[in-house]
Simulated assay, not measured.
Amino acid sequence: MAEWGGPAPTYLETDAHMRLLLIRHGQTPSNVKHLLDTAVPGPGLTPLGEEQAQALPEALAREDIGALYVSTLLRTHRTAAPLAARTGHQPLVRDGLREISAGELEMRGDDEAIGIYLTTSFAWAAGEPERRMPGGENGTEFLSRFDAVVAEAAGTGVETVAMVSHGAAIRTWVAARAANVDVEFATAHELRNTGIVVLSGTPDTGWRVLTWEEHSLGPDSGVTGASGPAGEPVG
C-alpha cells in the first residue's frame, strides 16, 4: 500500500462554500464478483479499474482541486494516483472515508447479504442511525467518521476538495446530508466505478448536490457529466 498521508493543510476561518467532489474508486476484482469486500487494506484495481483511474484527470480537468483525500483502502490510493500526479497534491489518508463495514456479511455476494447491507445503510440516511450492521458499525458511527473528514477539509479554506471513497459510503452520506437528495434517489441511482458526486456547501449551512454522475441537480452545477469514465470501458 502506498505510504501517503501526512498532516492536513493549515486551517483557515472561512464561511465560503466548498465544492466537494466525492469519487468512487475504480473497479476491483471483488466488484466483478459482486462481493461485499470492505476490510482494510482490500484489493487493488482490475485492468479496467486502472484505465478508469487514468481517465480521471481528464474528466476533472476543469476542476481546480486544492486538496485530495483517500480512504485507508488500497483501491482508493490506486484510483487517486493519476489525479495526484496531475494536481501535485499528496493524498491525505483518512479512515473516516473507508467503506461501510460489512461486519458478518464480509465477502458474501448473495442477494440476502447485499439486501441486508443496503437496507441497513440506507436506513441510516432515512433517520434510523441506531440500526447496526450485523457485526459492524451503526449509522451514528459511520456518519460521524465521514462528517469528521468533510469538516476537516472544509476548515482548511480550500475551495475545491476531491475525496476518493466508496459506493455505499458516498450514497449513504449524501442521502443523509444533502438537502436535495433523499434515500429514494440514492437507492435508485447506483454510483458506478469512478462515478462522481459534486456538492456545494459547508458543514454548518448544509450541502446540496450539483451533479450526480450525469444528472444535473441544480442551476449552479457547473460542468454536467463530470463523471467522465464512470464505470465504463476506456477506448
Rank of each mutant, 00 (worst) to 15 (best):
residue 189 H to C: 13
residue 151 A to P: 09
residue 30 S to N: 12
residue 234 V to E: 13
residue 140 T to K: 14
residue 148 A to S: 14
residue 27 Q to Y: 10
residue 172 T to L: 05
residue 94 R to V: 04
residue 41 P to R: 08
residue 230 A to C: 12
residue 15 D to S: 14
residue 52 Q to H: 11
residue 26 G to V: 04
residue 33 K to P: 05
residue 180 N to W: 00
residue 187 T to P: 02
residue 225 G to P: 02
residue 202 T to W: 13
residue 9 P to A: 14
residue 55 A to I: 02
residue 202 T to A: 11
residue 121 S to L: 06
residue 42 G to H: 03
residue 215 H to P: 00
residue 77 H to T: 05
residue 168 A to D: 05
residue 1 M to A: 13
residue 204 D to T: 15
residue 42 G to M: 07
residue 155 G to V: 15
residue 139 G to Q: 03
residue 154 A to N: 11
residue 25 H to V: 07
residue 13 E to W: 14
residue 167 G to M: 11
residue 127 G to H: 07
residue 199 L to Y: 01
residue 8 A to Y: 09
residue 78 R to W: 10
residue 161 V to D: 10
residue 60 L to C: 10
residue 153 A to G: 01
residue 70 V to Y: 12
residue 204 D to N: 12
residue 131 R to D: 11
residue 214 E to L: 12
residue 102 A to K: 07
residue 125 A to Q: 03
residue 134 P to F: 00
residue 127 G to R: 02
residue 94 R to L: 04
residue 76 T to R: 00
residue 163 M to I: 09
residue 157 G to L: 06
residue 139 G to V: 03
residue 193 N to T: 00
residue 110 D to T: 00
residue 225 G to L: 03
residue 21 L to T: 06
residue 4 W to S: 03
residue 219 P to Q: 08
residue 60 L to A: 04
residue 79 T to L: 05
residue 226 A to V: 10
residue 63 E to H: 07
residue 104 E to K: 12
residue 39 A to F: 11
residue 51 E to M: 12
residue 115 G to K: 00
residue 154 A to K: 04
residue 208 R to Q: 14
residue 119 T to I: 08
residue 126 A to W: 00
residue 153 A to W: 00
residue 203 P to I: 01
residue 209 V to G: 01
residue 130 E to I: 09
residue 44 G to D: 03
residue 175 A to K: 02
residue 127 G to P: 05
residue 211 T to M: 05
residue 150 V to M: 01
residue 35 L to C: 03
residue 16 A to G: 09
residue 230 A to Y: 15
residue 165 S to F: 11
residue 61 A to C: 12
residue 221 S to I: 07
residue 53 A to Y: 07
residue 208 R to S: 15
residue 222 G to M: 15
residue 116 I to C: 14
residue 56 L to N: 02
residue 132 R to E: 15
residue 56 L to I: 08
residue 127 G to I: 05
residue 219 P to G: 15
residue 212 W to P: 05
residue 15 D to V: 15
residue 178 A to H: 06
residue 34 H to C: 10
residue 39 A to G: 11
residue 201 G to W: 00
residue 73 L to F: 00
residue 204 D to M: 13
residue 173 W to I: 05
residue 209 V to R: 00
residue 30 S to T: 09
residue 47 P to F: 08
residue 17 H to M: 14
residue 225 G to D: 06
residue 61 A to L: 06
residue 79 T to A: 08
residue 74 L to W: 14
residue 214 E to I: 08
residue 29 P to W: 01
residue 29 P to K: 02
residue 32 V to I: 15
residue 29 P to N: 06
residue 154 A to F: 14
residue 227 S to N: 10
